[in-house]
């Protein structure tokens, strides 16, 4: 019968082999993960529309990035590569399993801040946004997130989605207009413009 316990020696061996396989040490990964895991999970959940799938894809994305063997010029380069891998994974998963209905992600403040009037307004605004986002395509959601939340350049987004820069501008413009139309005339005021 095999012994399932993990000894300290096993852990050391595992850590050493991981560092060799990933070309990155645990501390370096930890710092990178702390900076990127939350936005990456949100991006995966928003674009795939499935929080459980986002958990799986989060693991897969980091694994692929670490195993890629790509040398990164900077942390920003690594971060953009991470989102590129994530976008491809979401696209491949959608292709394999078809489009799932988009489930809204639970907003934290609706649980804590529900009593105050401002909290209730914010919750309603978020719900409106969630509803509007569900009506966009996965690609439109991805474009908007990469451009306005992640701050990726047009070149990076075009490379991520495999489209030309000129086409990307059109796609992004349409996605933006579509979201604003779905949100209605109050959206501009709510957004603070």
């Amino acid at each position: 019968m095999s012994d399932a316990r993990v000894t300290a020696l096993d852990r050391l061996d595992l850590a050493a082999s991981a560092e060799q396989a990933f070309q990155m040490d645990e501390d370096g990964f930890g710092a990178f993960y702390e900076r990127t895991s939350r936005p990456l999970w949100l991006y995966l959940a928003r674009t795939s529309g499935d929080a459980r799938l986002a958990d799986d894809l989060l693991h897969e994305t980091y694994y692929r990035v670490l195993r890629s063997g790509t040398s990164f010029e900077s942390d920003d380069h690594r971060r953009h590569y991470l989102f590129r891998v994530a976008a491809n994974l979401v696209r491949d998963t959608k292709r394999r399993h078809g489009t799932q209905p988009v489930a809204p992600i639970a907003p934290e403040e609706t649980l804590v801040d529900d009593a105050s009037e401002r909290g209730a307004d914010r919750a309603a605004e978020r719900l409106d946004l969630q509803r509007a986002l569900t009506q966009l395509s996965a690609r439109e959601r991805s474009l908007l997130w990469l451009a306005y939340v992640q701050g990726c350049s047009h070149e990076e987004i075009a490379a991520t989605h495999g489209v030309k820069r000129a086409s990307l501008k059109t796609l992004l413009h349409r996605a933006k207009r579509r979201l604003l139309t779905l949100l209605g005339p109050d959206a501009r005021a709510r957004g603070g413009a």
């Binding site: 936005p39 992600i105 907003p107 978020r126």
Partner: peptide, 15 residues
């Protein structure tokens, strides 16, 4: 408008 709305939604999301 878009950036503010999306960021606001992300800030408040349970992750």
């Amino acid at each position: 408008t878009i950036a503010a709305l999306l960021l606001e939604a992300d800030r408040g999301a349970e992750v």
